[in-house]
């Protein structure tokens, strides 16, 4: 297919989204501040804003109403009596199947998935992007092209092969572990443990690292490519090697892109549903999966207020990141947009 440099630059062209957004508007200036055109303009924007804000508002008000009030009124009515009962229930008591310990389990699962996934995926991508931009070798661009094309393949195509890979790798590692562990310990039975990748958090961490790779590698590769080659050459003349240049020269200059990558991965992994369903067992389901199971469970009476509290709770992490990171988020999603 196309050569990866041009392929990458197409995407890189989207990266300055954030910078360009800071440019200030270019369009024609509305004439007078209270002209009809102006009223129409702001009116339209306000109306559209209602559509965008409505769900947030509905989630919020529903989650602080009692069930009787919900049954009487409508979704848009402000609460007559504010109660935090639904939040408590969503967090600590809501049931999925036989477990009735609320969303907190899913939350902590998600945290346990999130932290290693973010660290691992960013570390791998950082090193790969650096190697691809500054230590090119024959064939490295080809591998990169394949990786980028991979970003466009529907996940469903690769789901099952990965199941097999995780299971087999787990089995293989178990064999190695059981064969060699006797060397390290003599305690009876301590070598029975199995290494399980499929159906475990570590497997999911690997999956997130794999699917995060195209976009993150692209992000880092383009960033490092923008660092002048002469700086890299100077460091080589100064006797720094692969790791020395990475840690001493490149990394201290990479803070902005690291933050962007972090935002991208935290929201992406937190919001994941598909991989969580496929690659973990029920006790380890991330928050999104558990949320869906709570809300869409067919048993019992529907408690809409609890459902909305749970929904809002799940959305809270990415929303917080969004509102605090502001423009960096825009830059992150613009770069991550290829993820589709």
């Amino acid at each position: 297919m196309a050569n990866p440099a041009t392929l990458a630059s197409t995407f890189a062209a989207k990266q300055p989204v954030h910078d360009r957004l800071d440019d200030g508007p270019h369009g024609p200036r509305p004439k007078r501040s209270f002209s009809r055109a102006n009223i129409f303009l702001y009116g339209t924007l306000a109306l559209v804003s209602i559509y965008y804000l409505l769900p947030l508002y509905v989630m919020l008000v529903t989650s602080v109403k009692g069930m009787p009030e919900i049954r009487m009124g409508n979704v848009f009515a402000p609460p007559m009596e504010v109660t935090f009962e639904p939040w408590v229930k969503a967090w600590a008591e809501a049931c999925t199947g036989v477990n009735c310990d609320g969303l907190s389990r899913g939350f902590w699962n998600s945290v346990r998935i999130l932290i290693p996934s973010v660290l691992l995926s960013i570390t791998i991508a950082l090193i790969s992007g650096y190697a691809l931009s500054k230590w090119k070798f024959k064939g490295s661009e080809t591998f990169f092209t394949i990786l980028i094309i991979g970003a466009f393949i529907p996940y469903q195509v690769m789901l099952y092969p990965i199941v097999i890979m995780l299971r087999d790798t787990g089995g293989f590692l178990t064999d190695i572990w059981q064969a060699t562990c006797g060397v390290f310990t003599s305690a009876e039975g301590s070598c029975r443990g199995r290494i399980q990748l499929f159906g475990s958090l570590s497997g999911l961490v690997i999956v997130h690292s794999i699917f995060g790779m195209p976009i993150l590698v692209l992000l880092f590769r383009n960033y490092f490519a923008s660092i002048p080659d002469e700086l890299f050459k100077a460091a080589r003349v100064d006797g720094a090697g692969f790791w020395g240049i990475l840690f001493r020269i490149m990394l201290p200059m990479s803070m902005p892109i690291l933050v962007v990558a972090m935002i991208l991965q935290v929201t992406g992994i937190w919001n994941d549903f598909l991989f969580g369903v496929v690659y973990t067992r029920a006790e380890q389901y991330p928050m999104t999966v558990q949320l869906n199971n709570i809300v869409n469970s067919v048993q019992g009476v529907k408690e809409y207020n609890v459902n909305m509290a749970a929904t809002l709770l799940t959305g809270l992490v990415p929303l917080t990141i969004y509102f605090f990171s502001g423009k960096l988020f825009v830059r992150g999603i613009a770069a991550g947009a290829v993820k589709g």
């Binding site: 002048p228 002469e230 050459k233 001493r248």
Partner: peptide
């Protein structure tokens, strides 16, 4: 050898 570049290539940090 020692090398001096057009863009100075000083380590900024």
């Amino acid at each position: 050898i020692g090398m001096v570049f057009q863009s100075y290539a000083l380590y900024p940090q």
